[in-house]
């Protein structure tokens, strides 16, 4: 793969491809989150009866996955490329395979597979059926037909595709260490930009975050979410829900949450997500009338 696209080129090609499929190309959401699914463009827009197509890159933070920049495959901050199409098009699988061709993975040379993987997000009260997409034994994406979000069965099932951009780029560029990825095709590597961040954030996540403060902020976000919902402000309330979820992840990375507490925290975030989804849907229906 001599002419493998750089990291940023890959994103540009995906943007181009999905824009041609009628997707709105959005920018990353400006609140820390664990996965692109949390973006309101997916979680909230998956509900209701309005057709919707969007694609965007979402920085995703997984505090427990930090390895101080010493592991070639693990990051506490990485990029997901997220596509949502509602309702799911009949050609979803073909579109997906075409998108891989765009970034240099030719199905005539590679072994593409759809391997069962039922997706579930306990914190979002969401689930769907679909597959891990494999290329030569490598998971290069997660393909889901949403069935439920925020505890609410969807009216129009969406197709959601999530690409782990670093992993995919490593594969396409034949690079063994994420920090060696060619970022711009012009001498800048992924490590040049992010290695220091990985070290510092790993130290923050595991050693220096302030658990008392995090726990307090969690409670604050939870309360704020409730009071915003009381005023029917679904979107600002949902921001607080995402914040609570990230604060929980930070607490988890700090190792201060016991197994039983863990389930309780997840339950609290799910309750927020559910209430936000209901409020969003109520607003949508009101608009429709």
């Amino acid at each position: 793969m001599g002419n493998a696209p750089s990291f940023q080129e890959m994103i540009l090609r995906l943007h181009g491809f999905w824009a041609r499929q009628g997707c709105v190309i959005l920018q990353p959401y400006d609140v820390e989150m664990g996965a692109g699914t949390f973006h309101p463009a997916t979680t909230l827009h998956a509900l209701g009866e309005k057709p919707w197509r969007a694609a965007y890159v979402q920085p995703s933070r997984r505090p427990t996955d930090g390895r101080y920049g010493e592991n070639p495959n693990r990051l506490q901050h990485y990029y997901q490329y997220q596509v949502i199409m509602k309702p799911s098009p009949a050609t979803a699988q073909d579109l997906l395979l075409q998108s891989y061709r765009e970034i240099g993975l030719d199905p005539a040379l590679h072994d593409f597979r759809f391997v069962e993987d039922d997706w579930e997000s306990p914190t979002l009260g969401a689930w769907g059926l679909g597959w891990e997409v494999w290329c030569d034994g490598m998971e290069v994406g997660q393909f889901t037909y949403f069935q439920q979000v925020g505890g609410i069965p969807v009216i129009l099932p969406s197709f959601e595709m999530t690409y782990g951009l670093e992993r995919l780029a490593m594969y396409v560029q034949e690079v063994e260490n994420v920090f060696d990825l060619d970022f711009n095709g012009n001498g800048v590597t992924y490590g040049d930009i992010f290695l220091r961040a990985e070290r510092e954030y790993s130290a923050h996540n595991f050693e220096f975050s302030n658990p008392e403060m995090l726990a307090r902020h969690f409670t604050d976000a939870e309360a704020e979410c409730g009071s915003l919902l009381a005023n029917k402000l679904a979107l600002p309330a949902y921001d607080q829900c995402i914040k609570a979820s990230h604060l929980f992840n930070l607490l988890d990375a700090r190792g201060v949450i016991s197994v039983t507490e863990r389930a309780a925290y997840i339950g609290r975030v799910r309750a927020l997500a559910k209430a936000c989804c209901e409020a969003w849907l109520a607003g949508e229906l009101a608009c429709a009338i």
Binding site: L109, D136, G137, Y171, E174, E176
Partner: peptide
């Protein structure tokens, strides 16, 4: 390419 890819996956 498939063997090469699978070898790299396993290496990771």
């Amino acid at each position: 390419a498939i063997v090469g890819g699978n070898e790299r996956v396993l290496r990771a």
